[in-house]
């Protein structure tokens, strides 16, 4: 092992990073700590991180008892998976056509995509809500998934990535006898995994954590996604059972944290890539 030299600049940088990490991590640590404490300790005057009496079992069991937490996690998983699959299935051929095929509408279509990127969900929320209501689809998976099924961001991101694929490669595939769909599935997609992974991370993180849209369209606890479930929890408990609430929050954040730890490298690649392209 070579000794690590600690010059002043390095020390300063490390100190700043530590400070930043502490600020970011503090709420999570507090959440974990509160999930382990009995409520008497949560509201005590002292600021202790380590519980005097462990109440983790009670808190977690209450969290699962009071609201259908398992159901909510399942809802979250189903909604995120549906959104991701539909987004990718729609965006891949769109992006391929826009990046590599020559047709008259390519220019205007690109303008529409860029325009779509500029419009936030909050602007279209009300018309979509009215439409879903008119169709009688509120408070269900369709209402949660449909507005996000078509992702202009995915189209834009895949298009930028596909433009980097050499034209000769696609020409070779056509001469080898592939149809355009064959080219897409056999040549483009296998070489686009970095882009697809990056987008998947982005999409899953955004929709797992989304509170805005489920809050609008979902009313029954059976249809709630995890963040909305937490909100139900608070309302139901009149705000005094913080131990159970924090336990529920821990359960909700756990899947993404575990996923992050397992695929840390991919995760960072994905985020930096979306940062560059978006």
């Amino acid at each position: 092992m070579s000794p690590i030299r600690l010059d002043p600049w390095r020390a300063l940088r490390l100190a700043l990073l530590l400070l930043g990490a502490a600020v970011c991590l503090a709420p999570y640590l507090w959440m974990l700590s509160a999930a382990m404490k009995p409520s008497s300790e949560i509201f005590s005057a002292g600021l202790t991180l380590w519980p005097e009496r462990w109440a983790a079992a009670e808190n977690f069991s209450r969290a699962f008892e009071r609201v259908p937490l398992a159901r909510m996690l399942l809802n979250g998983a189903i909604v995120c998976a549906l959104i991701l699959v539909i987004q990718v299935v729609i965006a891949l051929p769109c992006a391929y056509a826009m990046a590599k095929l020559r047709f008259g509408a390519a220019g205007p279509l690109m303008a529409v995509v860029i325009l779509g990127l500029l419009v936030p969900i909050h602007a279209t929320a009300l018309p979509i809500y009215i439409a879903l209501d008119a169709l009688g689809l509120l408070d269900g998976y369709t209402a949660l998934v449909a507005p996000f099924a078509l992702s202009v961001f995915a189209i834009f991101m895949f298009r930028q990535f596909f433009r980097g694929l050499p034209d000769d490669l696609l020409a070779a595939a056509r001469l080898d006898g592939m149809s355009e769909l064959g080219v897409l599935l056999r040549v483009v997609v296998p070489n686009a995994w970095p882009a697809i992974t990056a987008f998947s991370i982005f999409s899953v993180v955004a929709h797992w954590n989304d509170l805005f849209w489920p809050l609008i369209v979902v009313t029954s606890p059976e249809m709630a996604t995890p963040p909305l479930g937490l909100l139900f929890f608070r309302a139901a408990e009149a705000g005094d059972d913080y131990g159970a609430l924090m336990a529920a929050t821990t359960v909700v954040t756990l899947p993404l944290v575990v996923a992050f730890l397992l695929a840390q490298k991919r995760f960072i690649e994905g985020i930096t890539m979306t940062g560059l392209k978006g």
């Binding site: 000769d168 490669l169 020409a171 070779a172 595939a173 001469l175 149809s179 040549v187």
Partner: peptide
């Protein structure tokens, strides 16, 4: 005929091999 049906084979300057 479209390229896929012409039954011609081409060698490209960049070789254009499937990387995967």
């Amino acid at each position: 005929l479209p390229a896929a049906k012409r039954d011609v084979a081409m060698v490209f300057q960049s070789y254009a091999l499937y990387p995967h």
